[in-house]
Design a binder for these strands. Structure first.
Length: 801
RNA sequence: GCUUGUGUGGCGGAAUUGGUAGACGCACAGCACUCAAAAUGCUGCGGUUUAUGCCAUGUGGGUUCGAUUCCCACCACAAGCACCA
């Protein structure tokens, strides 16, 4: 079998015939399958890409054969730091490098035989694409979803770039893994928090894998609680806190505010130990994320000398501390501390010798905080209540009646820091005018193109390279016409990928990001598959953009993705994550070269559960190669007949059912296993009919499209990609006989093959006639007999006493 | 620490609503073909045992006629979150 010739031949056929072109004006049912478009890095495709695409590749090929109009597109998410850094290193323009990398990727994707619609390829770095990224950004600006703020940001000194919280997890830069420092910067934000509730609500309507839904819910992190106003006696100022446990208000023995809380600066002359406070603030600001996590247990803080708070429910006077275990970014930056019933407050109180007052019965507050439920004590009008919900409700009523608090909601999700100080990204289309403020670039001037510059290296000041291009920076204010300066920061990498699935629908539209008509036909994405690592960032970001466009009436549905799944990683042969430094990277090109694309595709899907990680095994792949050889050589025993062989018919119908069902649930490994069983059976008989062979080729086609097309052509048939998916008859999947298992006390003691329609009574009788069963029930009392039709008989016996 | 997964032969992994544990593949062993090797085909392949049997799905309990599957506790690994009030 000349694998290389066969694969090249069919790849050319598909390209010449545009076999996988999605039709815009079709009365067929549509199916939109989406995979995460690759970042075209210099090293080319890795096995992970192939696994990520192979799943929906199989589904798409099956759908086409089932008569659907399938949109299965691909593109490139090509803006970003790695390309820019590599371009600087090699001293070539990122544009040149990007084009080169994309070419490499396209070549590799085609060699694997993916059935993408190559007429819809998009590249986020092309002005005709990012024009619309900027356009959507300006729409958000227009609707007040973009704002600028001076804040402490995560700054990577090595990449010289501001990072979002998501990009700097664990205090390390997501890109170069160096330590992040805090730095004050002008930051552009997208107000994603305005959509927190909608993003959460929307999850109820979609069909994401449960763990994916859960991760998104946790990321949004909604909590319901109460805002309560405390008063600071000395200055008469209100200090509002957020709590989820207002039922414990009577147990408050101190308060804590975040080190960055504005009250401190505002009233510094009223604070007697202000020097000590300043020292603490200084220390807290230098603590890296890493140190903070290491010191979770060890609470630090300083009492504010000069402030006393008054508990609004019982007028108790209590001290106020500052401590870095309270974060300015969540709630109000201030908490009421109930050490008897909160672990962190407990530790703090122990360390600073603050009284601990229990208000819920249960636990032992001399050793630990009690966070469970119980009867309310020491709590005025709440005393005696046993149910947490009722207590909270009662307290809320009290707070609202007396105007000292109200119910409220908080989210963990933060607004999205949306600017980067790098060249290779979409320019933010804003002009800074000293008279008019931040002014949007007019829509008709889009795209605001990246200037073609010689030196795009970042400056030491952390400014964008664009800041050095005077012809870019200096401009006229679109509003007043006076001299103004352009924003020089660019958008983060997540920008272009936040709406790309919409562009596939209408990739060449020059007037709109996509026509409503076409969106109406194609949306929603029926099935979106990608990496688990993108579930909390990209998927949430893009849902946010889509929700916004929906509110503007520009897209037809309220959620973009109907279904979302995720594939597991492919690990190195050593069971570790593949990485250059470990030297365990397998190059897909080598595998295609050695075994061919069909073997690679099939093996990747055969390795194990598609959703779980699995190690690469260099000898296991040989099994797939052998299997494909077997399929190939079956052609020598085909006899011409348009009927299934009688002795194979039942297995064929069962296999059609199994493969069809398994593809839908992404159980590709067992689908392939059942095809192997069928092939083994074919091999054990003297001859197979043309129809027997055809059905095998069709079922196997989504996995191994090249060789199956070739064999199908040898049979004299029209191409499989233009034929229909095999159907099975339910009645033919049922055997005439079955193997009845006979158990005594749950242990297997015998098996016999009997007619499928044997009655319960007959089964029980036959069971007791088996010799080995007789031995085990001899001289024992039969207590009862459990019979499962078409399966087993279990005889329960006990000793005769 | 919290949340969510996962734990089955030498290995990757199968096992409908609880009903034959180990499908399918790899590796290994024997045989056939060959001068020989590779490839291919056939046979075997959890442990123990003479067949009957007994023991085995991370560990310990429980529910059940029957548990890889359900419940409780614990252990290990992975991913996500990380003082979220």
């Amino acid at each position: 079998m000349d694998v290389k010739r066969i694969e090249a031949k069919w790849q050319k056929y598909w390209e010449d015939h545009k076999s996988f072109k999605a039709e815009d004006n079709s009365d067929k049912k549509k199916f939109y399958a989406l995979v995460e478009f690759p970042y075209p890095s210099g090293v080319g495709m890795h096995l992970g890409h192939i696994k990520a695409y192979a799943g929906l590749e199989v589904v798409s090929r099956k759908r086409r054969m089932e008569g659907y109009n399938v949109l299965f597109p691909i593109g490139y998410d090509a803006f970003g730091l790695p390309t820019e850094n590599s371009a600087i290193k090699q001293n070539i323009h990122p544009r040149v490098l990007t084009d080169r990398n994309i070419e490499t990727f396209a070549g590799q994707l085609k060699k694997v035989g993916f059935s993408f619609d190559w007429d819809r390829v998009i590249d986020t770095t092309k002005p005709e694409y990012y024009k619309w990224t900027q356009w959507i950004f300006l729409k958000m600006f227009e609707h007040g979803l973009v704002f600028r703020d001076k804040t402490l940001v995560n700054y990577c000194p090595s990449c010289r770039v501001v990072l979002s919280n998501e990009d700097s997890q664990g205090g390390k830069c997501d890109i170069c893994h160096s330590e992040i420092v805090q730095k004050e910067k002008d930051v552009w934000y997208l107000r994603i928090t305005a959509y927190a509730d909608k993003l959460l609500e929307g999850l109820k309507k979609v069909d994401y894998l449960p763990n994916i839904k859960l991760q998104q819910e946790n990321w949004i992190g909604k909590s319901t609680g109460a805002f309560v106003d405390f008063t600071i006696k000395e200055i008469g100022e209100t200090l509002t806190i957020y709590t989820t446990r207002c039922d414990t208000l009577f147990g408050v023995t101190f308060m804590v505010i975040a080190p960055e809380h504005p009250l401190i600066r505002q009233y510094q002359d009223k604070i007697r130990n202000i020097d000590e406070i300043h020292q603490y603030q200084e220390m807290a600001s230098h603590k890296s994320e890493f140190e903070r996590t290491q010191l979770v247990k060890d609470k630090t803080g300083v009492k504010i000398d000069g402030f006393t708070a008054i508990n609004p429910v019982n007028q108790e006077e209590i001290p106020i501390y500052i401590s870095d275990y309270v974060m300015m970014g969540y709630g109000t930056g201030a908490i009421m501390a109930v050490p008897a019933h909160d672990d962190r407050d407990y530790e703090f109180a122990k360390k600073f010798n603050i009284p601990i007052l229990p208000v819920i019965k249960g636990g032992d507050i001399s050793t630990a905080a009690y966070t469970g439920d119980g009867e309310m004590i020491n709590s005025g009008f709440l005393n005696g209540l046993k149910d947490k919900k009722t207590s909270i409700k009662k307290m809320l009523e009290y707070l609202e009646e007396n105007k000292i608090g109200h119910q409220g909601t908080q989210y963990k999700m933060k607004d999205w820091a949306f600017n980067r100080q790098r060249y290779w990204g979409e320019p933010i289309p804003i002009v800074h005018c000293q008279y008019c403020g931040d002014v949007a670039v007019p829509y008709e001037e889009l795209p605001l193109e990246l200037p073609d510059i010689e030196n795009f290296e970042v400056g030491t000041d952390g400014e964008s390279p664009l800041a050095k291009i005077e012809s870019f920076v200096n401009c006229k204010c679109p509003k007043c016409g006076k001299d103004a300066k352009r924003e020089t920061d660019t958008m983060p990498q997540w920008a272009g990928s936040s709406w790309y699935f919409l562009r596939y629908i209408d990739p060449h539209n020059e007037k709109e990001f996509a026509s409503y008509e076409k969106l109406k036909y194609w949306m929603n994405v029926d099935w979106y598959n990608g990496g688990m690592e993108h579930v909390t960032r990209h998927v949430i970001y893009s849902r946010f953009w889509y929700h916004f466009l929906y509110d503007l009436g520009l897209v037809p549905t309220d959620e973009p993705y109907q279904k979302r799944t995720a594939q597991g990683l492919i690990l190195g042969p050593d069971g570790e994550k593949m990485s250059k430094s470990k030297g365990n990277v397998i190059d897909p090109n080598d595998i295609v070269e050695m075994y061919g694309a069909d073997t690679l595709r099939t093996y990747i899907l055969f390795m194990g559960d598609y959703g779980l990680e699995a190690p690469w095994n260099e000898s296991s792949i040989k099994g797939i190669s052998r299997f494909i050889d077997k399929v190939y050589h079956l052609k020598e025993k085909v006899i011409s007949s348009d009927e299934y062989s009688k002795n194979l018919e039942s297995l064929i119908h069962k296999t059609i059912k199994k493969v069809s069902d398994d593809i839908e649930t992404m159980k590709f490994n067992t689908a392939i296993a059942s095809l192997m069983t069928l092939v083994n059976k074919y091999n054990s008989v003297d001859a197979i009919t043309k129809k027997d062979y055809e059905v095998l080729l069709k079922l196997f086609n989504p996995f191994a499209p090249h060789v199956t097309e070739e064999l199908n052509e040898i049979l004299g048939n029209k191409p499989i990609c233009e034929s229909s998916w095999p159907k099975y008859e339910e009645s033919k999947t049922i055997d005439e006989t079955f193997e009845m298992v006979v158990q005594v006390n749950g242990k297997v003691r015998g098996k016999i093959t009997i007619d499928t329609n044997t009655s319960k009574e007959e089964m029980e009788q036959l069971a007791q006639q088996i010799d080995n069963v007789k031995i085990h029930i001899k001289e024992k009392e039969i207590v009862k007999i459990i019979t499962i039709p078409k399966k087993l008989v279990n005889i329960v016996v006990k000793e005769i006493s």
